[in-house]
Design a protein around this nucleic acid. Structure first.
Length: 690
DNA sequence: GTCACAGAAATTTTT
DNA sequence: TTTCTGTGAC
């Protein structure tokens, strides 16, 4: 006993006073306002460990995080602390804490599978990812004839975005359209009709989309039977990244902890960057009113960055209009000031980044400890080409996911259909792969399937169109084998293998670069070897898709070193020794797509703030002065850009300024370079004569 | 009904 | 560069 309390003291001794106050706070509601790099993860991990140490049953703790990766990291640290407390006397093996950890969506899935029946939801449901929702919207739009009004109807992606916003903000369709999608005002009625059909169809098909997971979780909490049962599961609920939750999510917390007892939220209003997903900064600002008796603990000591970097980032965020004021400070007072890098164009920017990254590596900073951050996924394309040419390994996070590529979705459609034969989205996708089957025929076949209550045998008597007569029986055999009872001992990977054998010839006739795509399929198969439960595999891969190609490769090789390329959104919560923010020009940050109103612009400011605060020791902010308009006839057409409006004089005072062009180049080099440009220019001008 | 091709249009961030 | 829409052949 005595020895144990000594060691908890030692463990807590690693924390500064506010961190410690937060970690050891009692059961009343707690809001930790944690600035960038202030040891938020450490504090939260210590809090969980402290709760367990104080006697809370780990399986009665719910830890909600933004990604599953964040959840895994947090639990790993909790376990490490617990092991420390036990003095290595065993007991806390990795993965043994049994804390409920995951994203809102994955926890929703678990709860709904278990309690869904109490609100008349089938426990066997499939999850539609964003692309699936869009596909369903598209086919319903055609069925309803909404595209035939002469004017063009909003695209499927826009429809899905509007729908999701309505659900997540819990406001009326009219309001959402007026505020966020004014150009769709004329389609108000059509959209209403479409959304009604969408809701009905999901019900018939036993499918839930991402938003449904949250909506039905709330329904569970509101239900007189299920609500208390769910609430009874948890003594403590902790939420990370609270600034990026939406109204619906805050209501879920209220439903879980109506009186706020056992509730902890952690976040930083200055880092709220997900309003496009209906996240609202109001959640964190209003938390104390929503949960009376809240203790607010601010964390302001930054352990990540040097003071010179913080000075610049503090000035970026100081211009924000509404925020919970806090000034971050660090006792790492020495260090280089951030560098503003002036590049003539994008190629020079890429050059600069590659050179500088390699120079850092020479100094002993591994590639893995360096990152290049950008606003939009395509901003890194030129850099990717340059890195590939110079054999610099890199991983890219964010942007188009592996799972969203057509061939992967094709392969998974077979499995999804077998898993839930009512899943019309999967069925349609699969059927369209067959020659001679188009949207009309596929629609009829799906209808027949649904009428038969999802019995695949409904297709036994189908007469396929001539081009598919040969392949049809083998498809039916495949589906029956996958759906058969003897599959109990089958690994998901083995199932995928069977599908792949059937699918390969279809893929080869349908897509270019078949070899590369087939490799992807093999990797997916590899990934699936860890799963024996098909439903779980499908749910997990949908809710938490592998975020980079490399994630497929299983265990990372230890000496594998690579540069990180990431969208700013995907960089949330992470940190690197050296950070390069590229394309810091107006139009990119803030994005031209997001300068509609002041709130959007404020969010773009926070985005730049998030990017810059990822850096520990070195920070480079690059901007190309000139952009070429690619693709069109005149290859020399270009425009000049302005430095991002958020990098004001005030901020620049804290920075060094540099040009990307190497200064050491002697005059001869300079001359030859100029001559080169001139020759190219002359050639272009000659071409322009035609 | 399906498919292949052509031309036009749009183009962020993600559970 | 991808995605959508329209057209015409089978």
């Amino acid at each position: 006993m005595n020895q144990k309390s000594t060691s908890i003291e030692t463990v807590l001794g690693e924390l500064n006073p506010p961190q410690r106050e937060a970690a050891c706070h009692g059961p009343s509601p707690l809001l930790i306002v944690a600035g960038a790099g202030t040891g938020k993860t450490t504090t939260l991990a210590h809090r969980v460990a402290w709760l367990i140490h104080e006697g809370t049953d780990p399986s009665r703790i719910l830890l909600l995080t933004f990604t599953r990766r964040a959840s895994a990291e947090m639990l790993r640290r909790v376990e490490a602390i617990l092991r420390q407390l036990e003095g290595g006397r065993g007991g806390t093996a990795p993965g043994s804490t049994r804390v409920w950890g995951g994203t809102f969506h994955s926890i929703a899935t678990r709860l709904l599978r278990r309690f869904g029946r109490m609100i008349e939801l089938p426990s066997e449901f499939s999850i539609l990812d964003r692309g699936d929702s869009e596909d369903l919207m598209a086919s319903l739009r055609n069925e309803l004839g909404l595209g035939e009004t002469g004017r063009r109807f909003p695209k499927k992606g826009t429809c899905a975005a509007i729908y999701s916003r309505v659900v997540n903000t819990q406001t009326s369709l009219r309001e959402v359209i007026e505020h966020a999608f004014p150009w769709c005002a004329e389609d108000l009625d059509g959209l209403g009709e479409l959304f009604a059909a969408y809701v009905d169809r999901k019900e018939v098909q036993h499918c839930l989309d991402f938003d449904d997971l949250l909506v039905f979780w709330e329904a569970l909490l509101d239900d007189p039977g299920a609500g208390p049962a769910v609430r009874k599961l948890f003594d403590c609920v902790l939420v990370d990244e609270y600034q990026d939750t939406n109204r619906l999510q805050s209501r879920l917390l209220k439903g879980l902890c109506p009186d706020g007892v056992g509730l902890t939220a952690v976040g930083d209003d200055a880092q709220s960057i997900y309003s496009f997903r209906a996240a609202t900064i109001r959640n964190i600002l209003d938390f104390p009113e929503e949960h009376p008796g809240t203790t607010v603990v601010p964390l302001e000591q930054n352990y990540r960055s040097t003071q010179p970097i913080l000075e610049a980032t503090n000035r970026v965020i100081a211009q924000a209009s509404q925020r919970h004021t806090k000034t971050l400070w660090s006792d790492r007072t020495t260090g280089e000031r951030p560098v503003l890098v002036n590049c003539t164009d994008e190629d020079e920017q890429s050059d600069f980044v590659v050179e500088e990254v390699l120079a850092r590596r020479e100094e002993g900073v591994a590639l893995k400890d360096q990152a290049v951050l950008f606003r939009a996924s395509h901003h890194s394309l030129a850099l990717e080409v340059e890195l590939a040419q110079r054999n610099v390994p890199f991983h890219k996070y964010g942007g188009l996911r592996f799972l969203e590529t057509a061939h992967i979705k094709d392969l998974l459609a077979f499995l999804k259909l077998v898993d839930n034969p009512r899943d019309g989205v999967a069925a349609t996708r699969m059927l369209l792969l067959l020659p001679g089957i188009g949207p009309v025929r596929a629609g009829r076949m799906v209808e027949a399937l649904l009428e038969a209550g999802g019995q695949l045998s409904a297709w036994n008597d189908i007469k396929p169109p001539p081009p598919s007569t040969e392949i049809w029986p083998s498809l039916m055999t495949l589906l029956k084998r996958l759906a058969g009872d003897d599959r109990a001992e089958q690994n998901v990977s083995a199932e995928l293998h069977q599908v792949r054998q059937f699918y390969t010839p279809l893929l080869e006739s349908r897509y270019d670069h078949a070899a590369a795509r087939l490799r992807d399929l093999e990797q997916l198969e590899q990934l699936a070897t860890r799963y024996n439960d098909r439903s779980r595999f499908l749910a997990e891969i949908t809710l938490d898709p592998p975020s980079s190609t490399q994630d497929f490769a299983g265990e990372p090789i230890l000496d594998d070193d690579f540069l990180v390329l990431s969208t700013i959104h995907s960089a949330k919560g992470l940190e690197w020794d050296s950070v390069f923010v590229i394309h810091a020009a107006d139009g990119n940050i803030p994005s031209d797509m997001a300068t509609g109103d002041d709130e959007e612009i404020e969010e773009e400011r926070r985005l730049l703030y998030v990017a810059m605060t990822r850096a520990k020791n070195r920070l480079f902010v690059c901007y190309p002065q000139r952009y070429y308009f690619r693709g069109r006839r005149r290859s020399d057409a270009h425009g000049f850009s302005q430095l991002s409006r958020f990098l004001t004089e005030d901020v620049l005072e804290c920075c060094q300024r540099r040009t990307a062009r190497p200064l050491e180049s002697d005059e001869a080099d300079d001359d030859s370079f100029t001559a080169d440009v001139t020759a190219a220019e002359i050639r272009r001008r000659i071409k322009d004569l035609w």
